[in-house]
Write a protein that binds this DNA or RNA. Structure first.
Length: 256
DNA sequence: ATGGCAGTGCCTCACTGA
């Protein structure tokens, strides 16, 4: 079974890429972020995905945010948002697929260290940690996947001299990431790959993709019970090379 | 090396993203 994450930066625009990618890879489960579509528009996509053999569940809003799960297999116990946390922004959807709890999250960007959005990001991450801890107590096999908007280490940026200490790379954000790891999760990509300059996002400006100037901010964190089944984690850069691409590209784990 | 790109929406700009 393969499970992937992809921030599509508007599913309306990227729908052809997503449909092609699912058919090419045969990926079993795909978590999407930044749908930028309200639920009336999302509802119309159910038939599009059904036509190629996938279920589609979504948690959307107009213009901003929005997350979804696409799966070949039945989705059970679907939960939207972080329970017991008031938040109008649609950033989380979770479901159980073949016994694996999949939590798809679009973590707050934060804008800058002096922004109110940065404080929202840190508070939001604390709520996410509480939620994931509770989920792990119920579901031993769990993956927390999505756009974290956090580069965990200096080597996860193309230019540490520019990024270290800035938003996405600040000590409090990295401490929050470590707080998730400390729940017993593993950064599945780093478990297999120690090479430098491996990124999941590249700015649209300045030919950043061609220059290999990116960040690694999209992650799949696996519980220890699930990690025992994970045989690989790879970044698929192919969709980033298409016409009118998302600025993010998919990351995929394969389970035994 | 971030003004410069891209998407959305009460759309000839503002807001958001990372």
């Amino acid at each position: 079974m393969q499970i992937a994450t992809w921030n599509v930066n508007s599913l309306k625009v990227r729908l052809p890429h997503v449909l092609d990618w699912l058919q090419t890879t045969g990926c079993d489960v795909l978590g999407l972020q930044e749908l930028k579509m309200d639920n009336a528009a999302n509802a119309k996509l159910v038939a599009e995905f059904a036509a190629i053999g996938y279920n589609y569940v979504y948690n959307g809003q107009k213009t901003y945010n929005g997350v979804a799960l696409i799966s070949k297999h039945p989705l059970e116990n679907i939960v939207m948002d972080i329970p017991e946390y008031e938040d109008v922004q649609k950033r989380v959807i979770a479901a159980t697929i073949n016994g694996v709890r999949v939590i798809c999250a679009y973590i707050v960007n934060g804008e800058s260290l002096t922004s109110d959005k940065y404080q929202y990001k840190l508070a939001w991450l604390s709520q996410l940690q509480r939620y994931v801890a509770a989920e792990l107590a119920v579901y031993p096999e769990l993956v927390l996947l999505g756009d974290y908007n956090i580069a965990p280490e200096a080597r996860d940026t193309y230019a540490p001299q520019i990024w270290e200490g800035q938003v996405l790379c600040s000590a409090p954000e990295r401490a929050a990431f470590q707080g998730l790891i400390d729940l017993g999760l593993t950064d599945s990509f780093r478990h297999f790959n120690q090479e430098e300059r491996q990124f999941t996002w590249w700015d649209y400006r300045n030919m950043a993709f061609r220059r290999k100037q990116g960040l690694r901010i999209d992650h799949l964190l696996a519980s220890s019970a699930l990690m025992a089944r994970v045989s690989s984690c790879v970044i698929d850069t192919a969709p980033r090379k298409l016409e009118r691409p998302s600025d993010h590209t998919p990351v995929i784990i394969t389970l035994n």
